[in-house]
Simulated scan of single mutants.
Amino acid sequence: MTQNAPPESDDDHGRGSGIRFTLEVWHPDCWTLEVTEATDASLIAHTVYNENGHVVKGHFTAYGETEASIDDLVAATRASALTDSVSVMERRHGGDRRGPVRGKPTTELFVEYDSRNTISDALLAGGFYQEAPVRIQGGREYWPLFFETDDRELLADRLDALRDEYDAEITVRRVHSDNRSAINVSHRTDSLSQRQREIFDLACEQGYYSWPREVTTRELADEADISKTTLLEHLRKAESKLLDPTD
Rank of each mutant, 00 (worst) to 15 (best):
A75R: 05
V48H: 08
I44G: 05
E51Y: 13
I44C: 09
Y63F: 14
L73Y: 05
A76I: 00
D71Q: 14
F60V: 02
S80E: 10
A75M: 08
G53N: 09
I70K: 01
V56W: 04
T39R: 04
Y63I: 07
A76V: 03
T47A: 13
I70H: 00
A79Q: 11
A41W: 02
I44V: 15
N50R: 14
A76S: 10
S69F: 03
T47Y: 14
A75G: 10
A45D: 03
G58E: 13
E67D: 12
H54D: 14
A76F: 02
Y63Q: 02
G64H: 00
G58M: 08
N52W: 06
T39A: 04
I70C: 02
S42W: 03
D71L: 12
F60E: 03
H59Q: 12
V48K: 05
A76G: 06
D40L: 06
T61N: 07
G64F: 01
A75P: 04
N52R: 15
Y63A: 05
T61I: 09
A62Q: 02
T39W: 00
T47D: 15
H54K: 15
T39F: 02
T66C: 03
A75L: 10
V48S: 09
N50L: 13
N50M: 09
G53P: 01
Y49I: 10
N52G: 07
K57G: 10
D40N: 13
H59D: 13
S69A: 15
H54T: 14
G53D: 09
L43R: 06
V48T: 14
T47R: 14
S42T: 03
G64V: 02
N50A: 11
Y63W: 11
D72F: 00
G64I: 02
T39Q: 01
H59R: 13
A79I: 08
S80K: 06
L73D: 02
D72E: 05
A75K: 08
H46Q: 12
D71P: 02
